[in-house]
């Protein structure tokens, strides 16, 4: 057998024994404690001992979704950051890039995810969807079509949906900030 131990450079190197904390767990701790969120975004941990499952509430202070509070669930698996966090909208909302099941069309949550991105990037990306909805990448086709064809009607629909209104037979959740 090769003598590996003698390759250890010095005592200091030998002392570098790492804890049993998983890489995913350390990374999530680092991501969360270094979040730099504006006042329009807030995290909530149903179980503060569980850092892997939490919600994010976005309350845009400008744009067409101003006045609403939008809730997203985050679920992080043990293969983070190789795998992106799983993010879903917890409410039924009227938005071109969010479907009625809560799926979100945000490139960094799927095809463009890289381990160098972090939870902060995902959260900022989500908030951006409310400031600049993107009709070119629709998940809610009706909403996207309305947005590009008839912007006034779209704005009205957004307002109505946020109050818990019904648009074309779909009942939306009331998301107004009380």
């Amino acid at each position: 057998m090769i003598k590996i131990w003698s390759m250890k450079k010095n005592e200091e190197a030998a002392a570098k024994r790492k804890p049993k904390t998983s890489a995913a767990q350390i990374r999530v701790q680092k991501d969360l404690t270094e979040l730099d969120l504006p006042s329009t975004m807030q995290t909530n941990f149903p179980d503060p001992a569980d850092l892997l499952n939490f919600t994010l509430t976005i309350t845009p202070d400008e744009g067409m979704y101003k006045g609403g509070a939008f809730k997203f669930s985050f679920a992080i698996n043990t293969n983070y950051p190789h795998d992106p966090p799983k993010v879903k909208c917890a409410q039924t909302i009227y938005h071109p890039n969010v479907d009625l099941e809560g799926n979100v069309c945000l490139n960094i949550l799927r095809e463009d995810w890289k381990p160098v991105l972090n939870l902060n990037s995902v959260m900022v990306g989500l908030q951006y969807l409310f400031l600049e909805p993107n009709a070119d990448d629709p998940l809610n086709k009706e909403a996207a079509l309305e947005m590009s064809k008839n912007r006034d009607q779209f704005l009205q629909n957004v307002k109505m949906s946020m109050r818990g209104g019904n648009i074309k037979g779909v009942q939306y959740d009331s998301v107004l900030v009380r």
């Binding site: 490139n107 799927r110 990448d137 998940l139 086709k141």
Partner: peptide, 10 residues
């Protein structure tokens, strides 16, 4: 390989 979810949907 992951495809954009909007492509899949539309």
């Amino acid at each position: 390989t992951a495809f954009p979810i909007c492509t899949i949907a539309n």
